[in-house]
């Protein structure tokens, strides 16, 4: 009789009351360890390496927008000392040349931006300069896109549209080998 009562007390279920607590514990662990960081950055395409020295192409001076960054992080744009805040506007004016000036590019297709830095240039400054030059192109693409398709430029644009815009305003940014100054040891 006593045996029967003990069997009665036995239940066929596991107590699930603490399940929530266990789940909470795990949840808090994952909450703490999670870092939702999206990887973002400026994507560039490097030129392929060739062992032969590159052919020296003579460009018309008016088609070349030279940007030099020295080891003191100063900018020399087409021979003038320039502040980085003016770089974007100057680059845009050079590429588009809205007033058809003689000293700026003949056509966006011929425009070349030449970037050269020292080994001692800080990476921060280099990226800031690169960012401004990229921004100049992005803004021009945006304007062109609004003109052609009356929608702003974005990465989700159909490939044909993007190609048409980049056909009109190709991004040509040539980077020279850095000069060997001011590298820290």
């Amino acid at each position: 009789m006593a045996k029967k009562s003990s069997r009665d007390r036995m239940k066929n279920e596991v107590n699930a009351g603490s399940m929530a607590d266990i789940a909470f514990l795990l949840l808090i662990f994952f909450l703490v360890t999670t870092t939702i960081d999206v990887d973002k950055g400026i994507t560039v395409k490097l030129p392929p390496w060739s062992d032969e020295p590159p052919e020296i192409q003579q460009m018309k001076t008016r088609n070349v927008f030279s940007v030099l960054v020295n080891a003191q992080d100063q900018l020399l744009v087409r021979g003038e000392l320039t502040d980085i805040t003016d770089l974007r506007e100057r680059a845009k004016e050079f590429i588009a040349n809205p007033q058809r000036r003689d000293d700026l590019s003949t056509n966006p297709k011929n425009a070349i931006i030449s970037l050269k830095n020292d080994r001692g240039t800080s990476y921060k400054q280099y990226l800031a300069v690169y960012n401004e030059l990229k921004a100049a192109y992005d803004e021009l693409w945006d304007e062109e896109c609004l003109k052609m398709y009356s929608i702003p430029y974005s990465d989700d644009l159909p490939i044909a549209y993007k190609r048409a815009i980049k056909e009109k305003i190709p991004m040509v940014l040539s980077e020279a080998e850095p000069t060997n100054f001011g590298e820290e040891n």
Binding site: K45, P48, Y126, P178, G182, E184
Partner: peptide, 21 residues
């Protein structure tokens, strides 16, 4: 400074890894 970054870039170009972010 850009020195070490340039070296890495050169190596990447030599190994054909051209897409860089």
């Amino acid at each position: 400074t850009m020195g070490i970054v340039s070296d890495v870039k050169t190596i990447l170009r030599k190994s054909g890894q051209l897409k860089v972010n």
